[in-house]
Write a protein that binds this DNA or RNA. Structure first.
Lengths: 194, 194
DNA sequence: GTCTATACAGTGATAGAC
DNA sequence: GTCTATCACTGTATAGAC
């Protein structure tokens, strides 16, 4: 429940974001959204065309937020390795998983191009952003020239996304942290001089 | 009486396995299972206590199968690096995702210890199995002694699980393959002599 | 073991009053 | 803009006949 200062449309979107993160698209019912937001049936269908429309607004906002969070770390100070390390080690609520990545396991999201688009664009942007940083590191001689920026970036983002899977399976953040350490140890040893 | 082919209980389990893979636990209804298996309502509740009980049987079988498939590659011939490469490059229906890993995004599976157990045990076994191979490679001098077997194994399994996420987001297997190549390039360069 | 009938809450949406 | 009423349909399960 949100304070009365925030308008109904806003509360609906925020409640939907929470539920999509917790239960996914298939597992989130309009009824649950209404209960959490404190809005009535009529309000929801006044502001949004239906469940997919509201979910789209929620997914777009979550995607934007994830992008901003990542950019805050990746665009920070430090060497390429340090910025990648900062991204990998950044504080996360590991057991909750990634609010964007989890949507890829939702059949109704993947089947709908409009719902999938923000997910695709965000993860694509993230890989490109990291690929550029790896290339930067190569040019500076921090990484071996044999490395491919896009491939390393894909491995980095996959390690994070897969780390969530392992952590949720285990009921503990430990496998996530182990994977991150493993990847960083490989990256650290992939220097031209090593 | 085997003359009529596969028995009903078997068909129910197989149909449930398919649906869990395609739509997850929350997205799979008893009705859909009955339609796909050709069984009637009564048969299902005769053989199984309900949806969770049937799902448990299906998940256990899928987990066993995944383990056998992985062991087939990891226990094969070749150096430690080659066996890990064989595991990473093994043919996969990438866009369908991992039938075990995808269950970790299902709130009702993660919330139920009995349903989560086969998922946990399988991914845990996989990490341990690969960790042993990495240790083997270290002892043989193929991998740098600075590497930690369990950490590298976590990174490997996470790259696969996360690769599925990236591929499904993109609607293409390309990011999965890129991540695998990236990880292998890092592993290949993490030799004591490199 | 399998079938049909039944139950009853939940889902996703529409209609119309205020 | 928001509310309540209503609706057709699905989800999950039980009962009892065959």
């Amino acid at each position: 429940m949100y304070s009365r200062g925030v308008n109904t449309s806003e509360r609906l979107i925020e409640s939907t974001r929470e539920l999509l993160w917790e239960r996914g698209y298939v597992g989130t019912s309009p009824k649950a959204i209404l209960e959490r937001s404190g809005a009535g049936q009529g309000s929801m269908y006044h502001h949004f065309k239906g469940k997919p429309d509201l979910a789209l607004a929620a997914i777009r906002r979550t995607a934007e937020e994830m992008r901003a969070t990542a950019e805050g770390v990746l665009g920070g100070p430090g060497t390429p390795y340090e910025r990648i390390e900062a991204y990998l080690r950044r504080e996360r609520d590991v057991l909750r998983g990634c609010p964007v990545g989890r949507l890829t396991m939702d059949p109704d999201v993947v089947a709908d191009d409009e719902l999938r688009a923000p997910v695709d664009e965000t993860l694509d942007w993230l890989r490109e952003r990291i690929a550029g940083i790896v290339e930067e590191g190569r040019e500076q001689g921090q990484f071996a020239s044999s490395l491919d920026g896009e491939e390393i970036a894909a491995a980095i983002v996959a390690t994070v996304q897969g780390g969530y899977v392992l952590a949720r399976a285990a009921g503990s953040p430990a496998p996530f942290d182990a994977g991150v350490r493993g990847l960083l140890s490989l990256l650290a040893s992939a220097t031209p001089s090593a």
